[in-house]
């Protein structure tokens, strides 16, 4: 996961107790670090910056050679084109965005509703071959989507789920449930089982005890897990492009990709659509950033 890489980088120097001066020369090392990080940041951020610039440039400036970095006319036309069709009315892209919202939202909700109770059960109860079961659950995530998409495609064709939103929702849910179980099991393990024991002696049933006393303590973890699931479903491309074809079913990733590849490519539109597509993920990640780090460290370090 990207976040664990960040952590590895940041904890490296902190956990290193040798005085820097003896190894590298303190100043020199710091300068080198800053330089490397700057290069890394530029390489990583340049495409993002270029995308944002392109989305607000007039078409003339988009295609200008040499490329214009600063001195261009700002326009919001491309963003209008994302949502409004050329003849007026809703654009097909805006329909794709709505599909994405629906598919990602519903599949995340389903994965959470199914995965959280399962994680609780794996954490609290003596289940036969628990470790093997958990490993099996995780192993369903070992295969990259491209490997399984053909068999899924054939199965979906048999049951009529090809080119339906329900089909996408189901496959995303299936991918997110194992992830939710693993993340949430770490969080549930952190909550002492005694709260539920005490609640049952107070007179509550096992389920009431879970709902009233454990669930509220799990909410931050559930939020973090759900955001990860949401981002997966929102960004997913392979299943979406193989399993859907019509405009009123397609989600945003294949729809945006579909803009590229005609005789002429409207790069301004592509860039604007991409910006719109990236925004919700950024906003969500920002909102739950504290829980994300807590979630990753808890879920990953434990077990």
């Amino acid at each position: 996961m990207a976040l664990s890489v960040d952590e590895a980088v940041s904890t490296g120097p902190a956990g290193d107790h040798t005085p820097p001066s003896r190894r590298f020369g303190g100043r020199g090392r710091a300068v080198l670090e800053v330089a490397l990080l700057t290069v890394l940041a530029v390489v990583m951020l340049f495409p993002v910056l270029w995308m944002i610039e392109t989305s607000i440039k007039e078409n003339r400036d988009v295609y200008a050679i040499p490329a214009k970095f600063f001195d261009f006319k700002v326009t919001m036309e491309h963003f209008k084109d994302v949502f409004v069709a050329s003849g007026g009315g809703r654009s097909t892209l805006s329909a794709s965005f709505l599909n994405s919202v629906l598919v990602a939202g519903v599949s995340t909700a389903l994965a959470t509703v199914l995965g959280v109770p399962a994680a609780w059960a794996y954490s609290r109860f003596a289940v036969k071959a628990k470790k093997d079961q958990l490993f099996f659950i995780l192993s369903t995530r070992f295969m990259p989507p491209v490997v399984v998409v053909i068999p899924i495609f054939l199965m979906y064709r048999q049951v009529g789920l090809i080119d339906t939103k329900l089909g996408l929702i189901l496959i995303y849910t299936a991918f997110n449930v194992p992830f939710t179980i693993w993340m949430m099991k770490g969080f549930v393990d952190e909550v002492p089982a005694e709260y539920e024991d005490a609640a049952m002696l107070d007179g509550y049933t096992r389920l009431q005890a879970f709902r009233r006393f454990t669930l509220p303590l799990l909410l931050p973890g559930i939020a973090a897990t759900a955001v990860f699931a949401l981002i997966f479903s929102w960004n997913e491309f392979v299943f979406a492009i193989f399993l859907t074809s019509s405009d009123d079913v397609r989600t945003a990733p294949p729809a945006i990709a579909g803009l590229i590849g005609g005789t002429t490519v409207d790069w301004g539109l592509v860039a604007a659509a991409s910006v719109v597509f990236a925004l919700p993920v950024l906003v969500f990640a920002y909102l739950v950033r504290k829980h994300l780090v807590a979630g990753v460290t808890l879920g990953a370090v434990r077990r």
């Binding site: 005694e194 024991d197 005490a198 049952m200 002696l201 509550y204 049933t205 096992r206 006393f213 509220p216």
Partner: peptide
Amino acid sequence: DSPAARDLAMVFQNYALYPR
């Protein structure tokens, strides 16, 4: 029987007070 049906009360070693 379920714990609730047994009509017992327990003080846990670590108290298990509901934190919220």
